[in-house]
Design a protein around this nucleic acid. Structure first.
Length: 915
RNA sequence: GGGCCGGUAGCUCAGCCUGGAAGAGCGCUCGGUUGGCAUCCGAGAGGUCCCGGGUUCAAAUCCCGGCCGGUCCA
């Protein structure tokens, strides 16, 4: 934070009897009508709001309405809330605050706000404090509605600033909610987030922070602060907390979830704690410091003291109730995330959904049964259907996804029992536990329970286990993939100094030949004042073709863009002298036209997939080349053959219907209003005006690419491959138009070459193959009997040739078939049959002799095969090898005859020495 | 996006650290035992140790690259 002029906190309201005071506990400065010891915010105080008289009780929904109405009456336009998945942001997955709705386009000045000033009640999801939810009786939640009134002050247009903002807060709380004014405290503070910062007030009543009033006025870059031209009033009112304040229920969960609290208790078969106990606990819960888990026991102790009961009784009643509160919160968050189109996955935003689901299942598993999850979610869906109609609409899909996640979790539970047997003797170390959680998702507490139950083994799981795990992971930036250029750094810098290139391909996608002026040349990169060459973007590759300069023809091998400047990549460097001259360019039309058709085909296919699989389908990546198109989408399971066929058929219907493709330019706010955020399938453009490519009543996307005029030009669409590339992401590959024959030709060529290898034609290849397989099986049978016969003969030969030496038998075996599997079998059987046998196998290989020596079980007692090798080496024989006492193998430079003689001598002398 | 774990018989997995003749249980086939319910005994079939390179006399095992699955973190 930077040193700021604290006079910004001296707003007009405070002249009416407020005084600036310092908190005894945290040392912060705050403003209040009344003299106080502390800042009035948890954890500096316990909750006293239960004793503050408030005009009346308001339900959660009433507070919601009251908030919007108050600011509407005071000149703010009500703006519709957005999904909890931040589709319009490249750098954030979830909507974590109301201001997120206006970042970065409005806050950076690219787009005007939809209204100014405005008010919004934005559902938000924040997962940072997920472990504290429940424990703090509702101070922490993973989902909440942030009421925000915002004003954007431009240098030439001032709306309002600190005085009015603080005054609105006072009036809302005092006049609308009915809080006695002397109970309000305004704490001076500092806010930072999302690259912006500014001073703020935290508004509290009786220990409960109800609103934050931020005056966003700095940009933060590398720790440096600079003032921004747009000064933004960014406020956040906690609708849940305000409802809690007026209702004075023991917890915020009672105020928000009403009858669901009792329902959840009943379904989970967990008794509700007596209200007086709960209330005492709630009052002290203000002092809980999140993250300090020992605090929770301290809380139970305080409550037990206050009520004169035992610690044990308090803990046994309150602890399970805390779990119920967490489940109330988590199940609603899950429903919201899934209904807004998140698909659970092991990476990307889908992981965030899985994270909440896994935490919920872990708790359910410990408390009751994971099978209850679908029912709990269903209760949330029906309880909230008035505020969130999308929940009910997505009901079937939500349950489908939940059931898939349940099945995955059951796998984990099954794994626990397998893993537990590994630790039947030895308790797992901390490292073991971390490895198991990290790599297999096995929660340590569940393994601990299993081991204690089954083997009585005591396992210690440290309190801060999960933070130990988290600290083991590196943390790269939270950025989604941003558009990257394939140009060298210095070329990017060079190119950005040029004016915007006129985009002829947008004026008319069918322009192939054009005239333009050369603005700049740098080695083999060239920039023109206008071009019909499409630069890579939106998954469509950069154009190829050629430029004619002074009668010379130079190939363009690629086209890229740097901001609004288009850079042509030439095959060879060009002299700077051509700058200022006229050139004629021609786009390689055969490639470009195929790409255009694949691009339009991609929009058609996406529309078809969304209709067949559902609205949760979102583009996760795409590439369009001349030979095929690739489209990755979010979906929770592999589509069936049926669904794929349906998609293909539907897509081709759109082609056959010959629908004109419309392209229009719309201001961002208007485009979003008409088409929704589904516009941003391929990414979010950073422009005030959006280029919308629309296939009427089928698909509309913000898109930079070139498209055909009419869907019929796509010709036809053939899906050629569908695969799961990550959990929750399905890849579709398809070909369109005149690329289909080349695809078919490739298939034919493949089939023909197979047929040719099988010495047949492609129509009889199947028969040929099955007859080949048959004869292979027959041969295998015949081979088996030959091997048996061969082994039998070899065994006879060996026992016939074996000579007696010093109480053992020695045989040399030189197989005349090169079949390792067979002569290994000979070695094994021979030594098994005759325990006194020492069997030497020798074969001649390219440049050396390969040998194996096998000993029977009796022979091993007097002779070690490894010793034979060492003895041979010390006798000067060049050989390399090794093995076990009863079997060695190796190679030698000696030929078979000399080597076998030498070995024989060595073995005999060795045995003699021993006797 | 990054880290970690795994891929061996139809299934569940051991073996890998420390290289040396591919294993167990279940299932399957056959024979016996048993009135039946996960009966018992014996015999047998079943393998691209994920794929491709490398190191080595020798690779399921060690090294490199890839594919597939899982999982954690952002």
């Amino acid at each position: 934070m930077i040193k700021i002029d604290t006079s910004i906190y001296r707003v007009k309201l405070f002249q009416k009897g407020y005084s600036r005071q310092k908190c005894d506990k945290c040392g912060s400065y705050f403003w209040s009508l009344k003299k106080r010891d502390n800042c009035g915010d948890a954890p500096c105080t316990i909750y006293t709001f239960f004793n503050i008289p408030i005009k009346r009780r308001y339900t959660y929904r009433e507070v919601h309405r009251l908030f919007l109405d108050f600011f509407r009456r005071n000149g703010h336009e009500v703006v519709e809330p957005r999904p909890v998945v931040a589709r319009w942001r490249e750098d954030l997955y979830l909507t974590i605050a109301s201001i997120v709705v206006f970042q970065p386009h409005v806050t950076s000045g690219i787009t005007p706000p939809p209204a100014n000033p405005l008010v919004i009640a934005q559902p938000c999801i924040r997962l940072e404090d997920i472990d504290n939810v429940g424990m703090t009786f509702g101070r922490h939640l993973t989902n909440f509605v942030m009421g925000g009134h915002h004003a954007f002050n431009y240098p030439d247009k001032f709306i309002y600033w600190t005085d009015e903002t603080v005054d609105y807060a006072k009036r809302f709380f005092v006049e609308e909610i009915g809080v006695p004014e002397d109970e309000l405290t305004f704490k001076e503070s500092w806010w930072e987030g999302g690259g912006n910062a500014g001073p703020c007030f935290e508004v509290s009543v009786g220990g409960l922070e109800l609103a934050t009033l931020v005056f966003m006025m700095y940009r933060v870059e590398d720790g440096r602060y600079s003032e921004i031209p747009i000064k933004i009033v960014d406020t956040g009112y906690g609708i849940e907390r305000i409802a809690w304040l007026t209702q004075k229920t023991p917890t915020a969960f009672h105020a928000v979830y009403g009858s669901l609290v009792t329902e959840f208790h009943r379904i989970l078969n967990i008794p509700e704690p007596p209200e007086d106990m709960l209330r005492v606990a709630a009052i002290f819960s203000a002092m809980l410091r999140p993250g300090e888990e020992s605090d929770i026991d301290e809380l139970f102790r305080l409550v037990a003291n206050e009520l004169g009961t035992s610690f044990k009784e308090v803990k046994e009643l309150i602890k399970p109730a805390i779990d119920v509160y967490a489940l109330l919160d988590h199940t609603k968050t899950i429903a919201l995330m899934l209904s807004d189109g998140i698909v659970p996955s092991n990476s990307g935003e889908g992981y965030l959904a899985r994270l909440v689901i896994r935490r919920t299942l872990r708790r359910l598993h410990r408390l009751a049964s994971i099978d209850l999850l679908p029912e709990l979610i269903m209760r949330q869906i029906s309880y909230w259907h008035d505020m969130y109609p999308q929940l009910y609409k997505a009901k079937d899909r939500i349950l489908d996804m939940i059931n898939i996640e349940l099945e995955k979790y059951r796998d984990v539970i099954r794994k626990i029992s397998t893993v537990a047997t590994k630790f039947s003797r030895r308790a797992p170390s901390l490292d073991d536990l971390i490895l198991l959680y990290d790599s297999q998702g096995i929660p340590p507490d569940l393994l601990k329970d299993e081991l204690e139950k089954r083997y009585g083994i005591v396992v210690k799981v440290p309190m801060n286990f999960y933070s130990i795990v988290a600290s083991k992971h590196s943390r790269p930036r939270v950025l989604k993939e941003t558009e990257k250029t394939r140009l060298p750094q210095d070329i990017v810098a060079w190119a950005s100094s040029f004016p915007e290139t006129r985009r002829l391909f947008h004026e008319d996608a069918y322009i192939r030949r054009f005239t333009a002026k050369v603005l700049g040349v740098n080695e083999n990169f060239i920039i023109l004042d206008a071009t019909a060459f499409y630069p890579e973007g939106g998954g469509q590759l950069g154009d190829k073709g050629y430029l004619e300069i002074n009668g010379r023809r130079i190939h363009v091998v690629d086209t890229q863009k740097v901001g609004n400047v288009i850079v042509h990549v030439l095959e060879s460097p060009l002299s700077k002298e051509v700058e200022g001259q006229k050139v004629v360019g021609e786009v390689d039309w055969s490639i470009r036209y195929k790409r255009m058709r694949h691009h339009t085909a991609t929009h058609i296919v996406l529309g078809a997939i969304r209709r067949v699989l559902g609205d949760h389908v979102w583009q996760a990546g795409a590439e369009k080349s001349e030979e095929k198109a690739r489209l990755d989408v979010t979906h929770y399971k592999m589509p069936s053959e049926d669904e794929i066929e349906k998609i293909e058929r539907l897509a081709n219907t759109i082609v056959d219907n010959a629908i004109p493709v419309r392209i229009h330019y719309l201001p961002r706010n208007e485009a979003e209003k008409i088409y929704g955020f589904a516009l941003y399938q391929g990414g979010v453009p950073m422009y005030p005006i959006i280029r919308v490519v629309e296939i009427p009543e089928w698909d509309a996307e913000a898109c930079f690419g070139t498209h055909v005029r009419n869907t019929s030009e796509v010709g036809a669409i053939k899906i050629i491959n569908v695969e799961k590339i990550a959990d929750g992401i399905i890849r579709f590959e398809f070909v369109a138009s005149t690329s289909i024959p080349s695809y078919v030709r490739k298939l034919e060529a493949e089939l023909n070459s197979i047929a040719k290898q099988l010495n047949t034609d492609r129509f009889t290849v199947r028969n040929k193959l099955s007859s080949l397989l048959n004869s292979m099986n027959e041969l295998r049978e015949i081979l088996r009997s030959y091997r048996a016969y061969f082994i039998d003969q070899a065994l006879k030969e060996i026992s016939h040739n074996a000579i007696d030496i010093e109480g053992l038998k020695l045989a040399i075996y030189i197989p005349y078939v090169r079949d390792r599997e067979t002569y290994r079998e000979v070695l094994r059987r021979a030594t098994l049959r005759d325990p006194k046998l020492v069997l030497i196998l020798l074969t001649q290989e390219d440049r050396h002799t390969y040998f194996e020596i096998s000993l029977g079980s009796e022979a091993v007692k007097v002779l070690n095969a490894k010793d034979i090798i060492t003895a041979a080496i010390s006798a000067g024989i060049a050989l390399r090898g090794g093995g076990k006492p009863d079997h060695v193998s190796g190679i030698t430079e000696l030929d078979i005859e000399h080597f076998s003689d030498a070995l024989k001598k060595l073995i005999i002398s060795k045995l003699r020495k021993q006797n």
